[in-house]
Design a protein around this nucleic acid. Structure first.
Lengths: 249, 249
DNA sequence: CTGAGTAATTGACTTAACTCAAAGATTAGT
DNA sequence: ACTAATCTTTGAGTTAAGTCAATTACTCAG
């Protein structure tokens, strides 16, 4: 399994010391300004925080941090896409989350004690992230306690999401897990249909849902043959979510 | 399946309107005072918060709140034990967490938007909880922003735990999921052995781990016959966690 | 202490999902 | 555009886990 070696063999560059280019442009920082963790900051404070941060470019499959590494930074995705995963003792790679541009990750490290990354993070394609010192954000919160509310409600939202993810995983059969996962990806809720883009390659969605890639492929083929989804590469079109839900019983 | 009817048939009492007795004794509030969310509060503030709270007694299997109900309170467990679960469209009951005395739950509702419970909560045996108005705690944080740090680090811890729970569920086979679950219950880490008490009846641990009770029972019997665990009711003795971990590959 | 009701175990059987293998399709990098 | 690598699909055979059913063991209220 190719994934097994990913963390240790495939990446020669030292982790977290990727080249940073001077911080002269504003691309991608518009999204930062509207992120819940940052949008309430006074411009001065935000600028100061950005000054203390570094922009990192990550290549395809490049590792950003390792599980259990001391965590001095959290991250904001400017472009590309990343994935969070863990490796167990037998080297099996288990995908836990994928992160899109405009999202933060490892932000929980701001208040984690001890601050150690709970998983590996790697770029799924060439990506840019803003690497924000945990200390800097924390000092900002200490100086301006009124900023805490944004952080609290962000953390609350994160906790609810994780809880929901956990719920999907207590679904006992692979087909229903996949259906639940797809329904959750639907942008406009379960009433209308819509197009869904898988945030990960299919083999990693399979890993995320605790099934084999072959099983994933077969289930999708089956849903397709029943007219429940229309598949185009990593884009799925779901015309009737309600019917999908009924199927998953 | 008896569980299927639990939320709708078995409980006749209206939810969240259980009798509250006058708040004259201090039993169980010692634990409250040392909980991360409360231990930093000035005595006056804590007293005030408690004044606005109610103590609820819950009977065996009594429902405390329902999934999707507007959430005006969060809870601290004084005695007994509760369980959080969800019901899906087909009525299947899926256990997501169990809560012991000294723990808080639904505290994420303080900053959730909209504040709606993400699951059902019921007492597993007769229990007492403190029902704290979300509004009261929130006002406290607004008045004393310095309290926010405790809340943030509590939320961070919660998020890490949920992430870890999710990780267990991405383990693909039932045996390894159970082993991982047991290891995590071990109080003294994975080096030394120890006794573990299942926080839920076995059939609910099975539900939490996305397997059938029969499967749970068979796996445990197998571990037992291999001398890996010693079972006594809901207490398990694990002499050599290291060996258990090796087995789970 | 006792009995009703629930929970746990065990057996026999069935099915869903995994494994291995090989062929196609897609993607990334030159 | 081309090639190499990786991902995806499909098939065939095997195994893990689910289902159904029956028995035994607990638990708790009276």
């Amino acid at each position: 399994m190719a994934l097994m070696q990913s963390a240790d063999t495939r990446y020669s560059k030292p982790v977290l010391v990727a080249v940073n280019k001077p911080f002269d442009d504003e691309d991608g920082l518009q999204a930062l300004r509207s992120h819940p963790l940052f949008r309430n900051l006074r411009p001065r404070d935000l600028e100061n925080l950005i000054q203390q941060s570094r922009r990192l470019r990550l290549g395809h499959h490049q590792l950003l941090y390792r599980q259990d590494m001391p965590a001095h930074h959290f991250f904001f995705v400017i472009s590309g896409r990343l994935r969070l995963y863990r490796l167990d003792s037998s080297g099996i790679d288990r995908t836990l989350d994928s992160i899109a541009p405009g999202d933060c990750f490892a932000e929980v490290m701001i208040y984690a004690d001890p601050p150690r990354y709970a998983c590996y993070a790697e770029a799924l394609k060439s990506s840019e992230v803003l690497m924000i010192p945990v200390k800097a954000y924390r000092e900002l919160l200490d100086q301006h306690p009124e900023y805490a509310q944004a952080a609290l409600s962000h953390y609350a939202k994160r906790a609810v999401t994780r809880f929901h993810d956990l719920e999907i995983m207590t679904v006992q059969n692979a087909r229903d897990r996949l259906i639940r996962y797809l329904i959750d990806l639907l942008p406009n809720g379960t009433e209308q249909g819509g197009e869904v883009e898988l945030p990960l390659p299919k083999c990693l969605v399979a890993s995320r849902l605790a099934m084999q890639p072959e099983t994933f492929s077969r289930i999708l083929a089956d849903l397709k043959s029943n007219g429940l989804v229309r598949v185009n590469r990593s884009k799925l079109f779901i015309s009737d979510p309600q019917r999908l839900i009924e199927i998953s019983q």
